[in-house]
Design a protein around this nucleic acid. Structure first.
Lengths: 145, 145
DNA sequence: CTTAGTGCAAAGCTTTTGCAATCCC
DNA sequence: GGGATTGCAAAAGCTTTGCACTAAG
């Protein structure tokens, strides 16, 4: 649910020399209106009703470009497929090991970890991804029955 | 380079009802003697000289079981394949965005992040994975030329 | 118009599965 | 000996690619 205005999306694509297509905007809109962190297949299915001719390959290509221009980020939650998030601000994610849902964890205290990791390894750090795994509140309740 | 004694490895497998096979020990040994965080294919190639009849499928099956008994952990460094680490103590990893090498980051300060994430999301957290991305020291130097 | 992007089908990769032969215990 | 495990080949995902057609600028 991180939604840029259509003009901003358009501008970002053009800036980088990409054309603004219906398909790219449609994929961005799905991402911008959900908190579910869908994968390519799910996005594709979501678009079927409104864009019945759109292909899965185009969803993949659009996602690659959206990530490239900074309109989305790719998540690796130890699943067989990648998930995507329109919120490109770095923030951790958490996946329920029972039902598989993936939620956001909003920004935690300023990055002492990154500084410490840089000091320890000598890397020039460009990014990080933090993932947590556990039981979501719903699954904790259901487990008791 | 986290190496348990053969007896400990054997014991851990038996405890969980798994048979101790040459193949499983061989896969563990590769992992235990490297800091490179290899994927299944790399492990398979490494074993070709000593175990020419071993199949890639068996490497995959062995890795699954090693992870299950706590002799290895699976890493998701935003690549197309999983990597594996015989050090099962939770610790962050860092991948060079230029050469692709993956290094360990040894344990950082006690987990304020996990506590904070639990508080914020209501999840009962079971595990975490922290990944950093940047340029390794070698690549930083080469880039200057 | 010109060039990039779409849609389709086929190919590529990593990982999993089915099954007869083999090896642990 | 009995049941788990191996090795092989085939299958099953997810993702990418090649190419003729279409649409954006």
């Amino acid at each position: 649910m991180t939604m840029l205005k259509p003009k901003e999306v358009t501008a970002l694509l053009r800036e980088r020399g990409f054309k603004v297509t219906t398909q790219r905007l449609a994929v961005y809109n799905v991402l911008a209106h959900t908190t579910a962190h869908p994968n390519a297949e799910t996005i594709y299915q979501e678009l079927q009703s409104h864009y019945p001719t759109m292909s899965l390959a185009t969803v993949y290509k659009s996602l690659t470009i959206l990530c490239e221009v900074g309109l989305a980020q790719e998540l690796n939650v130890s699943e067989d497929s990648f998930r995507y998030d329109a919120n490109t601000q770095p923030h951790p994610h958490i996946r329920c090991t029972r039902c598989g849902r993936v939620d956001d964890v909003m920004q935690l205290p300023p990055d002492a970890l990154e500084t410490q990791a840089a000091r320890e390894t000598g890397y020039a750090i460009q990014a990080h991804q933090y993932y947590f795994f556990g039981l979501c509140p719903d699954c904790q309740h259901q487990k008791k029955h």
